[in-house]
Design a protein around this nucleic acid. Structure first.
Lengths: 222, 222
DNA sequence: CTAACAAGTTAGATGTATCTAACAAAATAT
DNA sequence: ATATTTTGTTAGATACATCTAACTTGTTAG
């Protein structure tokens, strides 16, 4: 059995491992907003349960079992986000907080019903993949908009970060998943870009925003 | 702030107080499936927080504030049950367990949205009233079917108990809220009845079942 | 290469929610 | 009206998740 607290550690570990190779105690402490000694003792506990590989002073890694458990929590989180947006009319900037709580509900049929009602979606409202019921997460080959060149036409497919502020920024610019962006110009000096899409023929985007917008070619399916 | 655990005590207190005048430590321990000393110490804590009136060896009562908090948890529980049945297609016998977890989610807008999508329902799938957002619970004047007389025609309006087994029994007899029952005969000896409704011209019901079926006159609105 | 800094661990304390064992009060039954 | 049973409380222990303070290991910069 995994407690709510343990689930949060596993989830944080999978999310961090996704972004970088090695996860250390300090990072975990930061994302979970707890102190380092608390992390150390939890790592010992999770290692006992065979959910992480942990040795003092070494980077932390999830075991396969730990990865699977983490992925299943993330599955519940992302299904919930999708349900809140698609079936309950919430904005994509509102759903994270609610899903953060709903993800710990223990009821397979509740989430399977959500999945059915949604038609087995493959991604959540922010474009992140929804792990399947075995914990497998489909790979995605999106690239940040910042890697694009002038003249490229790309489809906005996902977001690298989904903070409320970023989502509200995107709302304010009518930027939604699925829209096609054309790169009008780039500014090598600071990495910013100007893009065109829908009713925005001339929208400037900071380097930071461009790095967080994940795109692919418009003919791609996902 | 009230913890999940505290919420469960408050809810149990309101539910028990509903059924009987005085609530004691033993009953609380039983419904919460914990030991009596645990109840005693929690009562002291809740008394400190002004959520219950508690003195050693005396019956336990909720304060007005405690009642309100309990009612708001029950509101979330019942809205959730209604949502699960009406919007997600669950059977009334499946929803209690899920709602028991969802009720602790802290997100006013999540429950307000449910309420809106449901059209502000006044009762849950078992006929129990849904407290309003101030914690007020509407009174209901149903009577148990067992008090009815031969020849009475009554509408099934609510259930006095909603255990899974009872709900499955009702399913097996096509007994649903809203149907009109006619009392064909009564058996003074053991309190059982025979009733007629829809495609069941001759259904025998035990005394226990008759006590748990709450009815009113078919012309009444609720 | 060592001094300074950053990262990690150990030890010991705290708060919450629970338990068991032992004792005390209240209710009940003869 | 007293003995017995039921109910409730106290005291002290345990598990979990957290903290601070002090110490250790590892990394980096001069």
């Amino acid at each position: 059995m995994t407690s709510l607290t343990e689930e949060n550690y596993l989830k944080a570990l999978l999310n961090l491992a996704d972004a970088q190779e090695h996860v250390n105690v300090k990072q975990l402490a930061q994302v979970l907003e707890i102190k380092m000694p608390t992390v150390t003792s939890m790592m010992k506990k999770l290692a006992e349960k065979k959910l992480v590989h942990y040795e003092s002073y070494k980077p932390i890694k999830l075991t396969n079992q730990g990865k699977k458990l983490a992925a299943l929590v993330i599955r519940k989180h992302r299904l919930t986000e999708m349900y809140l947006v698609e079936k309950m009319g919430f904005g994509w900037e509102e759903v994270h907080e609610i899903a953060e709580q709903v993800e710990h509900i223990n009821s397979p049929k509740f989430f399977e019903r959500m999945d059915e009602l949604l038609g087995h979606p493959r991604v959540d409202p922010h474009g992140s993949p929804i792990p399947d019921h075995t914990g497998k997460i489909s790979e995605q080959d999106y690239r940040p908009l910042s890697k694009g060149l002038v003249g490229d036409e790309v489809k906005l497919a996902a977001l690298a970060h989904s903070s409320t502020e970023f989502l509200e920024f995107l709302n304010s610019r009518d930027l939604k998943l699925g829209i096609v962006l054309k790169i009008i110009s780039t500014e090598p000096y600071d990495g910013s870009m100007v893009v065109a899409y829908e009713k925005h023929p001339n929208e400037p985007l900071s380097a930071k925003a461009c790095e967080r917008l994940l795109v692919n070619h418009p003919d791609k399916t996902s």
